[in-house]
């Protein structure tokens, strides 16, 4: 808890902890945080036993729906959420990779129709460790090492 003090506390909202430091900006973009008016503070390159260097994001007055927050599981599988009400943690949540992933992952197959036509990508989760996603269109499997967030 003492590490959280490095980022100012919020009255109501969501704290997203245990984001790998190198993926902070991917998380910000997946959640569309650059486009919302809420007060957002983040810290990065904080020390973490688990991750080496981690990031933390605090979003005031924002509570995420499951399908919204689960998007970040692809880049921050260990992320922990603290839901804050009146400066108190009222709920803790973890993220889970969704079974169907629509519109934010690139298919690694250069001959896939989604890389040539204006088609939103769509994948089915076929493996969690390591991550493996089967493309709905070309049927090829994109694995963790080739994962690119759009």
């Amino acid at each position: 808890m003492e590490k959280e003090l490095k980022v100012s506390a919020i009255k109501d909202g969501t704290v997203i902890d245990h984001i790998p430091a190198q993926n902070l900006f991917k998380v910000i973009s997946l959640l569309g945080l650059e486009n919302i008016p809420n007060q957002i503070t983040f810290g990065t390159n904080l020390e973490s036993h688990k991750l080496g260097r981690k990031s933390i994001i605090k979003v005031a007055d924002k509570f995420f729906a499951d399908d919204e927050i689960n998007k970040i599981a692809l880049v921050a599988p260990e992320a922990k959420l603290n839901i804050i009400r009146n400066y108190e943690v009222v709920e803790k949540r973890v993220v889970e990779v969704p079974n169907e992933i629509i519109g934010y992952v690139r298919c690694f197959n250069p001959k896939c129709v989604t890389n040539h036509q204006p088609v939103p990508t769509r994948f089915y989760l076929v493996g969690k460790h390591p991550l493996a996603l089967r493309c709905h269109y070309c049927e090829k499997v994109t694995t963790e090492e080739h994962l690119v967030i759009l």
């Binding site: 001959k111 989604t114 036509q117 090829k140």
Partner: peptide, 26 residues
Amino acid sequence: HPLEGAARYASEQASVPVINAGDGAN
């Protein structure tokens, strides 16, 4: 079609059935 997945995509856009006569190496 030379692109893989093109037939699946076409079947989602078409109001009639689609038969895939080959989509790339897929």
